[in-house]
Design a protein around this nucleic acid. Sequence first.
DNA 1: CTGAAAGCGCTTACAG
DNA 2: CTGAAAGCGCTTACAG
Lengths: 352, 352
Amino acid sequence: MPGRKKPTMPPATPAKAATINDIARLSGVSKKTVSRIINQSPLVRKDTRERVEALMREVGYAPDPMARGLAFRKSFLIGMVYDNPTAQYIVDMQYGVLDALRESAFELVVHPCDTRSPGYIDGVRRFVQQQKLHGVILVPRASEDQALADMLDEIGCRYTRVASVALGSNSSQQVITHDRDGAAEAADYLLSLGHRDIALITGPSAYRSTYERTNGFVEALRRRGLELPPERICEAGYTFESGVAAAEKLLLGSKQRPTAIFTGNDEMAAGVYRVSMRAGIQIPRELSVVGYDDSPLASRLWPPLTSVRRQTRDTGRTAAAMLIQPEDAKTLSVASVRPHLIVRDSCQPPAN
Amino acid sequence: MPGRKKPTMPPATPAKAATINDIARLSGVSKKTVSRIINQSPLVRKDTRERVEALMREVGYAPDPMARGLAFRKSFLIGMVYDNPTAQYIVDMQYGVLDALRESAFELVVHPCDTRSPGYIDGVRRFVQQQKLHGVILVPRASEDQALADMLDEIGCRYTRVASVALGSNSSQQVITHDRDGAAEAADYLLSLGHRDIALITGPSAYRSTYERTNGFVEALRRRGLELPPERICEAGYTFESGVAAAEKLLLGSKQRPTAIFTGNDEMAAGVYRVSMRAGIQIPRELSVVGYDDSPLASRLWPPLTSVRRQTRDTGRTAAAMLIQPEDAKTLSVASVRPHLIVRDSCQPPAN
DNA sequence: CTGAAAGCGCTTACAG
DNA sequence: CTGAAAGCGCTTACAG
């Protein structure tokens, strides 16, 4: 043969993927029947269904989400809307959502935002409408903004809210994390160790979780007959630095130090550790500390921090599962994920 | 009027969104011309373009990504593929990618995976092909797997790799993070303080970053005439626990303790802190420590950890920008983001 | 520089 | 239980 010209291989694109038409033709049914099978319609004879499904598996057919989305006027995308500053929380939530989406036709598209910026609701609206999202998962603090929820209702977008307590007036799907109970467990634990002079560093008041954790803690103490004086409650901002400032006020500002501190999250507990270190206050011998989140940080600190675990991945999984269940199966409208205390080495009975 | 029947309001769905046909009709051009304007074709007269664009803004028109995707046979989705265990790194990378995608038609869909599981490449392939992704961003360790890159080449999928050093044979787009230089800066810093007995805790050998950081560190010492003996190099697994184990070997196992330790990431540095705490070794008086990542953890530890900052958000932004630039503008094929040392309080000159 | 026709791969609405 | 026609909102390929 003249020349060494190789037979022209078709370039990178291997055999074009099968379409609904190929499946219909090869299995001898109409494309409408194939469509019924894709969409799990019961109106297909069992043997037809099985024959077609076998063919789909054989050729590796998967319906095109864009074509389906165009016809449905709705995409197969789930949005996650959040402005939480804690990386581990966000990543855990994403993992949970993806757990629920696996084996489904849905994918996760992320949308961080800043709930304090004026245009953020419009940003979410554009995101939802342009992508024709199937639904969105709202994570605190975005989930607590009623104006956001109202906007989503108005444009007819499904959503699931993750919230520290059952929220609001309308019937939106929710996953409740019962922060009140988690904080109460922390309170009971400190009381059981014998602490009576306890202080509290809260998150910012703009967060509903702050309200829940604060009240859960205060009321649990009250149930056991202990009233927390106002000067033992210090509002901070969920950040390390704000935790440092609050701890300074609590530990260095007054003659009488509390024997235990509960903080609204682990970051602020790290702030308490920092101040204690600097001031030579020994944890747990002179000061017991309990955090909230059970983040990786909790076990990196020394001594390892006792903290309330949130089961964030479960929360994300549940939220996504609720969102993608069929419209008619309205079984799940409110779900719960319960926190619980993880005891490590940051607490002991008070010294005296 | 009989009855109090309200005029039937159309339900939740407000005025249907404008389509390309509406824009064409209202502005008196063909839909093809509108399409040209959407796609920034130069083949449109300036005044026509301006008139139509004004109308688009007025009615708030945005083209439907599913319809465009169906016609293009390619979606407007960017995938991010990763199996990195560090939450902050992932979140920073996502933020960076979203920075670059803002104001574009693209959205980010996340795809964590496990590069040690046998089916993971098939999983990525299905993800890419079913969603007809516009491109994917590969993050370590996934970015270092040549088999993954080969598969993406084979199916004709664009991708950008984030890697610690320029990688491989083919011409894929890359963002290089120069981990070798970051580690060298850590070495120079410790040398400049006067340390001569230095130890190294590395990440797992399966990571290219481990190789780069280790060699960058070792060679920087060598350039200054210091040869690191093998027993001062300890392989660990990038986790806190593995850092603890390595630190125990280095600090408690031998008579002569090193005066400084460099660790492949901050998590393992936290392990060194833990062991030092337990053994009563004071940082930095008796032991200097340098980490890598400059994660939030670095400033939560006591004393605050000196660490190499990675600029992850910039890295993500650059990677995404490269991916969505037009095919013809091949200007950017390799980009660099440089690490640098953040000095805090975990180092000082050796005691003797 | 502009446009009419056909098609991307699905589903809806209607018939049977 | 099954199917033929029309359409979702865009782009490609071809003409002018």
